[in-house]
């Protein structure tokens, strides 16, 4: 099976697979991750601050999103949005669905992290004359973000691999591209191993970035 021809195929296909990884899969994951984190902060804050009505809407959103499969959400968006007159390209649609999906999970991560910040931090903020939003911005969110960072990054790593689901709504990402190449050569197994390795490389790099990120965010002088 691993004859000269296969090796040649693997070598020639590698840049093509990597290209779609770097051009489609990774940007999809990273953009959706950044947007979902911003969304998550607002959803978490609404619950943390117990904003009436808004917090109930947030709970409802989390309930729906966590209770349905990502693949189904992609399909619903793909076939549903055009019915509402919203037409957009599949990549953009995938970004939106991944953002909304990940936002629900990250919101819970952020909320838990915010609740883990001791109450005294909030009280001390009030006592030096800060407003609630100032305390959020300067004290609670930075500490919560530090706590949530590894879990959030975990989600990013997950999402890099889940981008393969975007193929279901016609996004040609790294895995779809691999399938195409494999289909042309009828040599599936080695190519799937190859694309698995590329995903592995991506995730290894991200893990490395996570370690660096944790250092940059610092541990406020706590020795590890």
């Amino acid at each position: 099976m691993f004859n000269e021809k296969t090796v040649e195929l693997l070598v020639s296909s590698f840049p093509k697979i990597l290209e779609y990884g770097l051009k489609v899969s990774l940007p999809l994951a990273v953009i959706a991750f950044i947007l979902s984190t911003i969304l998550a902060v607002f959803v978490a804050m609404a619950q943390f601050a117990k904003v009436p009505v808004v917090k109930d809407i947030c709970r409802f959103y989390i309930w729906i999103i966590r209770g349905t499969p990502l693949l189904v959400q992609l399909m619903v968006a793909f076939y549903g949005l055009p019915l509402l007159g919203i037409h957009s390209n599949p990549f953009l649609m995938a970004v939106i669905v991944f953002t909304i999906n990940e936002g629900a999970y990250s919101a819970e991560t952020m909320r838990a992290a915010m609740e883990s910040v001791p109450r005294g931090q909030l009280e001390a903020g009030y006592c030096v004359g800060l407003s609630y939003m100032q305390i959020m911005w300067h004290i609670i969110l930075p500490q919560a973000f530090r706590t949530a960072f590894p879990s959030l990054f975990n989600a990013l790593i997950s999402m890099v691999k889940d981008t393969s689901l975007a193929s279901s709504i016609t996004v040609v990402e790294m895995f779809t591209r691999t399938k195409q190449i494999a289909g042309q050569s009828y040599n599936y197994f080695p190519l799937y191993i190859e694309v698995a390795l590329v995903y592995l490389i991506f995730c290894t790099v991200l893990t490395f970035i996570q370690k660096k990120g944790e250092k940059v965010l610092g541990s406020y002088g706590v020795r590890k």
């Binding site: 001791p118 005294g120 931090q121 009280e123 001390a124 903020g125 006592c127 030096v128 004359g129 800060l130 407003s131 100032q134 300067h138 004290i139 930075p142 500490q143 530090r146 406020y220």
Partner: peptide, 29 residues
């Protein structure tokens, strides 16, 4: 803003340096 409060367990802002702990109420507050 007219009072100061000192807690039993200090409650210094854990993510701020000593200097920032003291200046935050001045600059932001």
């Amino acid at each position: 803003k007219k009072t100061g409060f000192v807690f039993q367990n200090y409650n210094l802002f854990a993510n701020k340096t000593v200097l920032e702990n003291v200046t935050l109420g001045l600059t932001s507050g």
